[in-house]
Design a protein around this nucleic acid. Structure first.
Lengths: 338, 338
DNA sequence: GCGTGGCTTTAAAGCGCTTTAAACACGAGT
DNA sequence: ACTCGTGTTTAAAGCGCTTTAAAGCCACGC
């Protein structure tokens, strides 16, 4: 019926001797067709190598079951999150369309592209957009903001309790005997404020009034700069909490080059538990952001709106998890570590 | 005409008082409609906030102008390549659909998903698929293999001359006075053989028969292990060429911890010029794979097949480019750098 | 014999856009 | 006046699938 072209629903129907409607129903697993019909349709579809044309299917039903995720590929943690979103979406019968955010392709533009592809919802990973822009976007299409502390208004928010995460890290260090802590913060970066306040709250809770915050940033250079500043001071703190893993790597690097042993002379804690932290030669104690859990909840939030009809915004705050590895140990005064 | 719904072509047509055909022509910039019509249609479209429904459009014309790119998000270099593909595709009027390859979502599966989205061609970044599988896939849809040395058969290949790249690095080191070189190779990884043979060819060319190859790998752990092996030997080589940047980072790390100065005691060269290499605290001399150029040529190859009707396979081999940074210097015997 | 209700199946109307063939308008040429 | 040609516009037929309303079929009970 149809020479070299890819088989259509009609070809299968004709082959079996039923209508395209029946074939459509069978192939989508909808109730109705009898077991007999079902069997024959399935057999014919397989034999003809039929594969549904998603485009036509999308046009006909008004749904696409597509989730859009703009992603900054260069950012290891967000990339990991995107992966997990794909996995979680899969489990719920949704596909994800990834859009690369690059210097020449900013977030707005990628969002438009994804919407043109008919994504039904957008999952934004630590988006840079202003809350106003987020709310506006949320008015057009369901939006879930992941990993950013912002008031849910017209969109959902899924994040980790970063203040608590830093608190766990502080507890861990204090438990080891540390009393002299420094936090190299993330300056104005997203979530940096939470981590900073979590640090201050936790140290006060332990009565450590000497605990200080040093201005830092979210990359290796910021950590390295902070480490150099610390080395210039008369006496090193016994433990440093970085704002994220990349900053921690910068700190480690400078300490290493300066002959400062970790954790012998100073303990270092990162944040994110990105791929970097687990590398054997880094072996960084850090706080996990639970990428998989965040992704799963984010997809769930989107699906609730799309399939469940929820419309009031929701905020999901997950507990972080301290991952103890090799860069933390007893302080140099107390233990025998140095 | 159409209450809350998004405006359709028909709404615009009705508003202007012409047929949908005219509107379609105007909006796509096809010749035919008069200047007058054109103007009024454009005005109406803007006023109504019309945005074409890509799905319907795709269904009607038989083209999608979509390029599929499976990408391993965790791999910095491939992620960068994917970004560049997006940029290059954009310039030629194509969009790219990214599909995340993860442990639970292997390359085959992602390829199927992308094909379901009606991608017209696939750009595979250092794919792991067997040549046979590649050829078979190439029979179904235009395929461009990027960054892998494989005979183009039923698909195109775009890659960098890795042997030459390593050769440039060797020349650079020899020019600095080095005579005692070691290459920590990539074992069985893609392109590793080329880098290895390039190393051997270049060192022979310079009469350095002592040049050795150590078995390594493509990650930090492999580099670290190789570095430890080197430290166990009675005398260190004066320069080490790693199979890629990640391996080089591992080498640097172990050297640093072992008190070996770079480049004072030993020079280190990476490969890829991934984001890692450029970081201030790493400052790694490396060989650039010219991601942007590779991406551009890959897109070009796909477009040639799709729009130009080319069908015979093509191989494009680009020249690599040495990027000299801070991890290479004169050898410890010769210069004063030790 | 006929109406009933439960299964199955299907005809047909879209989904929103593209495209082709044909219609149309209008002044030039003969 | 009539044919032609050029430049514009459009009716209508899809693209391949979904979905709804209606038709078919059949056993059952009155």
């Amino acid at each position: 019926m149809n020479p070299g072209r890819r088989p259509r629903l009609e070809d299968v129907a004709e082959d079996v001797g039923v209508s395209t409607a029946s074939v459509s129903l069978v192939l989508r697993g909808v109730a109705g067709p009898s077991a007999e019909t079902r069997k024959r349709v399935l057999a014919a579809a397989t034999r003809l190598g039929y594969r549904p044309d998603r485009t036509a299917s999308l046009l006909a039903r008004r749904r696409t079951h597509l989730l859009g995720v703009p992603v900054v590929l260069r950012d290891a943690f967000r990339a990991e999150l995107a992966e997990e979103v794909q996995v979680a979406a899969d489990e719920r019968g949704y596909s994800v369309a990834l859009g690369a955010v690059t210097p020449v392709h900013d977030e707005d533009r990628v969002v438009e592209t994804l919407l043109d592809l008919r994504c039904e919802a957008l999952l934004l990973l630590s988006p840079e957009l202003r809350p106003g822009a987020l709310a506006e976007l949320g008015g057009r299409v369901p939006v879930v903001v992941v990993g950013r502390h912002v008031e849910p208004a017209g969109f959902d928010v899924v994040r980790v309790a970063d203040d608590e995460g830093v608190g766990q890290a502080v507890d861990h260090l204090v438990g080891l005997g540390h009393r002299d802590l420094v936090h190299v913060d993330g300056a104005g970066a997203p979530m940096a404020a939470d981590r900073r306040s979590g640090f201050l709250a936790a140290t006060r809770r332990h009565g450590l009034d000497s605990a200080r915050v040093l201005r830092g940033g979210y990359d290796e250079a910021a950590g390295a700069a902070a480490a150099r500043a610390l080395l210039d001071e008369p006496v090193l703190p016994t433990a440093v909490l970085a704002a994220n893993d990349r900053s921690a790597i910068g700190l480690l690097d400078v300490f290493l080059r300066g002959g400062v042993r970790v954790p012998g002379d100073v303990s270092v804690v990162g944040y994110d538990d990105s791929g970097l932290a687990g590398l054997a030669h880094v072996d960084l104690t850090t706080v996990s952001q639970e990428a998989a859990a965040q992704a799963a909840r984010a997809v769930e939030a989107a699906v609730e709106r799309l399939d469940g009809g929820r419309s009031e915004p929701r905020e999901v705050v997950l507990p972080p998890r301290l991952v103890v590895r090799g860069t933390t140990g007893p302080p140099r005064q107390a233990g025998r570590g140095g």
